[in-house]
C-alpha cells in the first residue's frame, strides 16, 4: 500500500452556477506527498474546489492537471483510476453494507473478472475476491476498525462512519487524497486518532493530501502548507506560521479578537 504522491496544478479555475461565482480565478499547486490544508469560512468554495478536482463539477473556466494530465471533463467514475481518492464531509457510505464491504467497494476498480466469472464465483473471480479482501484488511488494521468489520455501516456512530469514509478513500490507493472536513463532528479522542492517521498516511503511504478543515490549530500543527480561501478566491498561501500571521487571513477567518 505505497502510493506515490501526485502533483496537482489548478490553473486559473473559475466555477459559476448561474450568476453565482463559487470559485474565482483560483490557481494553486500541491506538491508530491505534501499535506496541503485548505481553510476558509463557510461558503468560501473549499468543497466546491474538491468537487471540481473530483469531477463532480466541471470548472466553468480553467484547467486542473494531475501530474501534467488534464483531468477536466473526465467522467466521475474514471477519477479513481487516475489516482484520486475522496472522503466526503458526510462520509457518503453505503449504509446497508458492512464496513468490509464498503471498503471493498473502494477497491471496485481493481476487479477485472466479468459477470459470468462473478456469478459462478470460480477461478479468477474467487482469487480476486480473496486478494482484495486481504488488502482491505490491511486498511482495517491501519485505521483500527477491527471490531466494526462486520457491522452494517448505517448502525455505526458518526465518528466511526467518518473514519470508514477516510479508510474507503485510502483503499483506492490514491496518488491524490481529498479529505473534506474529516474532523468535523468528531469527539476529541477521535480527532486525535485522526491526526495520528493523517501523519501516518503522510509518512508511511505518501499520497498528496488536500485536506479541507476548519480547525486552525489542528491545521497549523499538521499541515505542510495552508491555502486560505475566502469568497471563492485565494487570500493566502504558505507555511502555517506565516499564514496564521497574515493580516488578510486574520481579517477573513480568525476574526478581530485574534489580533488583540
Amino acid at each position: 500500500m505505497n502510493a506515490r504522491g501526485a502533483t496537482l496544478e489548478i490553473e486559473d479555475v473559475t466555477l459559476q452556477f448561474g450568476g453565482i461565482t463559487a470559485i474565482r480565478n483560483l490557481s494553486l499547486r500541491a506538491n508530491p506527498s505534501e499535506l496541503l490544508a485548505l481553510v476558509g469560512p463557510n461558503g468560501a468554495g473549499k468543497t466546491a474546489l474538491l468537487n471540481c478536482i473530483n469531477g463532480i463539477y466541471q470548472p466553468t473556466v480553467g484547467a486542473i492537471l494531475l501530474d501534467g494530465l488534464d483531468i477536466g471533463g473526465l467522467p466521475l467514475h474514471k477519477m479513481v483510476e487516475h489516482g484520486i481518492g475522496r472522503a466526503f464531509q458526510h462520509a457518503e457510505l453505503f449504509p446497508h453494507l458492512t464496513v468490509t464491504e464498503n471498503l471493498l467497494i473502494g477497491r471496485h476498480c481493481r476487479f477485472r473478472s466479468g459477470l459470468w466469472a462473478a456469478g459462478i464465483y470460480f477461478g479468477k473471480a474467487r482469487r480476486e475476491e480473496m486478494e482484495e479482501r486481504r488488502r482491505v484488511e490491511s486498511v482495517i488494521d491501519f485505521f483500527e476498525l477491527y471490531r466494526h468489520r462486520d457491522m452494517q455501516v448505517g448502525a455505526l456512530p458518526y465518528g466511526v462512519q467518518k473514519m470508514v469514509g477516510v479508510a474507503r478513500a485510502l483503499c483506492m490507493e490514491p496518488k491524490l487524497l481529498l479529505l473534506d472536513e474529516p474532523c468535523t463532528g468528531l469527539i476529541r479522542e477521535e480527532r486525535e486518532n485522526l491526526a495520528r492517521f493523517l501523519l501516518r498516511i503522510n509518512h508511511e503511504i505518501g499520497p498528496t493530501v488536500i485536506w479541507v478543515e476548519h480547525d486552525m490549530q489542528m491545521v497549523s500543527d499538521l499541515a505542510d502548507r495552508i491555502v486560505v480561501l475566502n469568497h471563492g478566491a485565494k487570500v493566502a498561501e504558505g507555511v502555517p506560521d506565516v499564514v496564521r500571521r497574515d493580516p488578510v487571513v486574520v481579517e477573513a477567518y480568525l476574526g478581530h479578537a485574534a489580533t488583540a
Binding site: 466521475l76 453505503f94 446497508h96 476498480c109
Partner: peptide, 25 residues
C-alpha cells in the same frame, strides 16, 4: 454468487447512493 461479488456490491452502492458510487469508481 453475484450478490457476494463486486457486481452485487456495486449494485447495492448504486441503489444506496448513486453519486457516491460513481465517485468511488
Amino acid at each position: 454468487n453475484l450478490s457476494r461479488s463486486y457486481v452485487g456490491r456495486a449494485w447495492v452502492a448504486i441503489r444506496d447512493r448513486d453519486i457516491a458510487a460513481a465517485s468511488v469508481g
